[in-house]
Design a protein around this nucleic acid. Structure first.
Lengths: 165, 165
DNA sequence: ACGGTAAGTTCCATTTTAGAACGCAGAGAG
DNA sequence: CTCTCTGCGTTCTAAAATGGAACTTACCGT
């Protein structure tokens, strides 16, 4: 399968990954959340080659994750700002942070990155909850609705009843 | 920067992406959540080359996202099952599903993948909420605690106060 | 004129990936 | 006992992506 075909799949995970699923894109977006918005800064902070950075930024602009904002005429210079779609990736960052803190740090050699939820003032870890009843979501409680074939297994995106068996 | 160096970074996002950040890994994990657990099935469903699939599965086993479970002696055959760390990636799948449904489907050509939360019986979209106060998390409400330099910008993983300005 | 800044582009060596064919260890059929 | 099939890789070659460094363009300040 060629990579660009993934964006046409009838699976939202595949379509997300058709943009986000490479070695640099999510790191670039991470740094955008860190307020980085200029080419030189992305390049220095990430150590990505200029070639690739140029390519990735263009793709993200094309896909409406970033927008270019002019900050200087003559010569024209643009900042790369997250669009609404880009900002909507914050949950992805939080969830990856959580997972990395918990599972990629088993020897405890890295201090976990913790967050304070400013409105309540407590250290928090984000939890996924049902928008309807507010209960925390457990994988086996989720039942997908299939409007069509949603993936290439013929099975819904859900966890096995007995993954460990 | 070489790719393998990413796993040693003091940033949980970078460490997560050192495993998940390539073109196939999250798709393989998606299919694992779809109950796929054998080499042939992954290969047929994803259209990934056998070479790469072998490589990725081995890496995921090594990183303790999958475990090999013997299901047949002579010749020895293994199923690839998600470990606890692997199952903990379900939020990543849900969040990517949400984002793809919302932002990678602007022409409405793909029916969204919807979920029913079985305990309450309603269609749901997962929301990130504070583990302490239960309020929904908005990017600008999050204030990271820096135990050390958590990234290579010297800035915390938080959203700009004025991203649009 | 000269050095500095910002954002790419170009070039080439190395690495990764795609695609198909091949290997192997049994299992079951004839 | 050969013949084919299944399951799981490994090997091979060509194509694509990536890393690393140098080069280009356009302006600015001195």
């Amino acid at each position: 399968m060629k990579w660009h075909e993934l964006g046409e799949k009838n699976c939202p995970v595949a379509r997300s990954l058709s943009i986000l699923g490479d070695r640099w894109t999510l790191l670039i977006i991470r740094n955008a959340f860190l307020r980085t918005c200029r080419f030189e800064d992305f390049q220095k902070q990430l150590g990505i080659t200029r070639h690739l950075l140029s390519d990735r930024l263009n793709r993200l602009v094309e896909k409406k994750v970033f927008k270019k904002v002019l900050y200087q005429e003559a010569p024209k210079r643009y900042e790369y700002k997250l669009t609404e779609a880009g900002l909507a990736l914050y949950p992805v960052m939080l969830v990856l942070t959580n997972w990395g803190n918990t599972w990629m740090n088993e020897d405890g050699s890295h201090p976990p990155l913790e967050y304070v939820h400013k409105p309540c003032g407590h250290k928090t870890s984000p939890e996924l909850r049902c928008s309807e009843c507010g209960e925390e979501i457990h994988p086996r409680d989720m039942m997908p609705l299939m409007d069509g074939l949603q993936n290439n297994t013929g099975r819904p995106l859900a966890i096995p009843d007995s993954q460990d068996g």
